[in-house]
């Protein structure tokens, strides 16, 4: 079943002079099994939107339906068992390494599963599996999370969410502050999780991640959904108005087309396919 937003609005500081409407009548469906990106400039409502998926925020209007759970503006309709919902929807915040607090890595990763009602030894087992999944071997289990490097800490905190075995995984800027290869490793990890059947919702500014990993993109602008599309079609359009940066490859394609070339964007995957396309268009002339 998809995650469905039905006419959802959210107002911060309601009934105060500082009231601010962060979401305006959102209607979207995030398909089960998809790798969906949510993009847009800072303050466009992306984070507010994803906070509704595991009921960290309740809508001011409308409702969000996640499988059998309902997060509605109407208190009576709301699902009471928040824990079951939060187990189902894992949320990895930006810089998640700041949520570590236990004395060993395995304990920290087991913290979530234990909160969701798993027994001590089952939670530890789930923790070990999740740690191996994120690429941290037995040597890390008993270490203190605070003595690890930045990238390793981030892996531990992500393992802490994966250990809860969520069906939906929301990740907010998971590559912020990582170097290019660290980012790639991180995203490959999410791709692996996605392949195993988890729906991934990626909140990001980085269009290269959208291009390389996502199958669908939701563009947010000023609290509204501006566009729902797929990455390649998105890069064919003018997205600078949403403060998004076209990956250089597609910027080149767009500029070349503006200068009279005739390149089919849909056939360009990388530099090599671009050059193939260029030759074809040269021959065509």
């Amino acid at each position: 079943m998809p995650v469905k937003f039905a006419d959802v609005s959210y107002v911060y500081n309601k009934k105060s002079p500082m009231a601010f409407e962060a979401l305006k009548h959102i209607n979207i469906e995030i398909k089960e099994g998809s790798f969906t990106a949510i993009v847009g400039r800072t303050g466009c409502g992306k984070s507010t939107l994803v906070s509704h998926i595991n009921a960290l925020l309740n809508p001011s209007e409308g409702e969000v339906i996640i499988d059998e759970f309902v997060n509605s503006a109407d208190k009576k309709k709301r699902t009471k068992k928040l824990k079951d919902l939060r187990k189902k929807v894992g949320l990895v915040f930006q810089f998640p390494e700041y949520q570590l607090f236990e004395e060993t890595v395995e304990k920290d990763v087991a913290f979530g599963p234990k909160n969701f009602g798993m027994k001590e030894e089952d939670a530890l087992k789930a923790a070990h599996e999740a740690l191996l999944e994120v690429g941290l071997n037995e040597g890390f289990f008993k270490r203190s999370p605070f003595e690890l490097s930045g990238g390793e800490k981030r892996r531990v905190s992500i393992a802490g969410i994966l250990a809860c075995k969520p069906n939906y995984l929301v990740v907010d800027e998971p590559t912020a502050g990582l170097d290019p290869l660290g980012s790639k490793d991180m995203m490959d990890l999410f791709e692996k999780v996605h392949q195993a059947g988890t729906t991934i919702i990626l909140v990001t500014h980085d269009m290269n991640l959208v291009l390389n990993y996502c199958d669908s993109v939701i563009v947010m602008d000023n609290g509204e959904v501006a566009k729902i599309t797929d990455p390649i079609s998105l890069f064919g359009e003018d997205i600078e108005k949403y403060s998004l940066e076209t990956p250089l490859l597609y910027k080149l394609v767009k500029d070349l087309n503006a200068k009279g070339k005739d390149i089919d964007v849909a056939k360009v995957k990388d530099i090599s396919t671009l050059l193939d396309q260029l030759r074809i268009s040269k021959e065509a002339k």
Binding site: D179, P180, L181, G182, L249, L252, I271, L275
Partner: peptide
């Protein structure tokens, strides 16, 4: 573990 800038990668491919 470092990449190549786009324009330089394009030059190499050409």
């Amino acid at each position: 573990r470092l990449g190549i800038p786009f324009v330089i990668a394009l030059k190499h491919e050409l």
